[in-house]
Write a protein that binds this DNA or RNA. Structure first.
Lengths: 204, 204, 204, 204
DNA sequence: CATGAATGAGTCTTCATTCAT
DNA sequence: CATGAATGAAGACTCATTCAT
């Protein structure tokens, strides 16, 4: 009995937490970190002022929570591409699968996508640094991929810093386009198109 | 006489205005729209509080002014690429020249670049909409270029919406990389690399 | 049976109450009335938030309880000094015994002492008035003692209001000093010194 | 002209500052440091919220200002008592004059007096430490006076720590009594009575 | 024109108190 | 009885904007 009701309480708490996180995510996406007010968050979450601080220490803390969660989720979807293992699918297939998984995760949650696209200009939240670190991590992954590609003669020689920046910018641009068209397009098509541009260029 | 002193006054006024705009640009770039305070701006511009409101009606107004100026400058550097006129340089040469001109303008003014890259997330400034409109305008330009390219058989068939979004995202990503490296790289090199990726893709 | 278990319940309740009072006393002494938080009290008392309000109706109420208890304890230690009864010890001996008893009670409970010394400045607690009343009561006692002393020719003629205020102030000052030295000094010595100053003055 | 109007502005600012300090002093005296709210202060001072922060950085800062001013004023009234210079008035006359001056200053400003009597239990204001230091300073002065008195055979041998604590407590008790009687008594009479008790004791 | 003192709506955060479980 | 999640009034502080000089 006791454990049951405690579990129920815990579940309720987790639910509340999710509810606040969702509201905060939406508000941050709408207004940006600075523009978002606790007021807006609690109104959206339909809770009292104090309740917010029962679940999060501060405005920065919710923001951090959101980003941390997103980063963890994204990290879980990112894996090194296996080139040497002959049993593994072809690198391009692996790459495609990963990009689809990532984009699907991001695009699936509009607010989160907006957040990720705009964060970075948010000096006070600690998460901003961690977000930077995360993006650096991703960039390094792409850089290593390019380097490997060059080694095995798959990819053209290029400035990997610039090329990776260009590729990531491309991904961001494409995500924005998907958000803009809001579901009128499947992630799968998007990835095909994007890979085409990225891998083969626009010229015939 | 009157007109002369008026002109002098006008010139002085214009100078003051520029001075405030410059200060504001720096502050906005440093702190973002919300993080920027009138205080910081007037301190940097060495003017009194009231003086600021003599030249701009609000914080949002300066921000708008800065973006409007930037958009006007950029528009002046963007021209349709001439494909039919045989006397004109090759399309790729024209394209390259334009992109170099644009990037040089943006990268030359670090504060402005930072501003443009982050301005999308600044709800209260009206300019935000105009900025959106501006980017749409640019995207349309790119789209038309792609369509023309496809018509004359220069470019691969593709989803022009996505491809243009990808290309613009690429440009933004590359600009960020240039800012990150802060002058350790010339615009010319950047454009070469970027065009390579964009036009031919990363594959060998 | 019922009455027995009720008694047990009552005893348990009383115990809980004491536990909370002790925690509250410590917290009030540490942080002052305003600085003390219900949070700190319940943490120290190891009880749940709601439980606190089962035993006291408000923060002010605990504070009042503490002071009331202290006042009752102190009252029990204060008696009129018997001058006429020849069987009684000499007035100075009686006085000394009482002061020792009072100081010992106060100094023995550091938290309480701190509380009493600072409680005058705690507007919202009702007890503050009662504390004032209590001190007035004590002052009156001292005043009557001085008057009696004057009548029987033991004491110098003086303004009893001022003299009693001075004497009580002295006691408070001395208590503070004892707290400051924290046990490096016995109440007995303190009282000797204090009586010397009070009764004979500092001059030789 | 310019300097005149600037001076006028400065004078006006000084006046405002005084006005706020006075209001704050009254509110702090009424409610204690914690109990005092910026709201209460600005209402009493008849100014807007922001104006307060134009003159003081924080609530603690006003509090500090008040105490610092008081301490400076009091220090200016405290001088070592000259025992060796034969041309100087008798030590007791010097002492009396000083105590009168100090009490007159304190009693003259009811709010300040209340503040000084109750401060010390005000942890967050920096001034609290400085106030402690000030009181320690005064106690040391009294201690040295007692020691000197003992050396030249004027004073009885005694525990100077306790005796000085007793004497200062006495002063505080007497000040409280004067405030209680609110002007129904002159400082001069008070000092006479107090010195009588302090120097000769209450016994005949 | 320029100034800067004054304003007050709005921000984040705390905390005494209540009440459903 | 005990619990602790929920509440919201109230607190300190910021800052874009106005206006008398």
């Amino acid at each position: 009995m006791v454990s049951t009701s405690q579990d129920a309480g815990d579940r309720a708490k987790q639910e509340r937490r999710r509810q606040i996180l969702a509201a905060a995510k939406a508000v941050f996406a709408d207004a940006g970190y600075h523009g978002a007010s606790i007021n807006a968050i609690i109104e959206r979450a339909q809770i009292a002022r104090g309740t917010f601080y029962l679940y999060f220490e501060s405005k920065a803390a919710v923001f951090d929570s959101i980003l941390d969660q997103a980063m963890a989720d994204l990290r879980a979807r990112i894996k090194r591409i296996e080139v040497e293992d002959k049993a593994a699918p072809a690198p391009q297939v692996q790459l495609r699968a990963q990009i689809v998984a990532i984009l699907e995760y991001i695009v699936h949650d509009r607010a989160l996508a907006t957040l990720l696209l705009s964060a970075g200009h948010t000096p006070e939240a600690e998460a901003s640094e961690r977000l930077d670190a995360f993006f650096t991590e991703v960039r390094n992954l792409v850089k290593r991929a390019l380097e490997t590609g060059m080694e095995i003669g798959l990819t053209r020689r290029c400035n990997v810093d610039l090329a990776s920046a260009a590729l990531l910018g491309m991904i961001r641009g494409v995500i924005e386009e998907v958000l803009r068209q809001d579901g009128a397009i499947t992630v799968d098509d998007v990835v095909s198109e994007m890979l085409m541009v990225a891998l083969r260029g626009v010229l015939k």
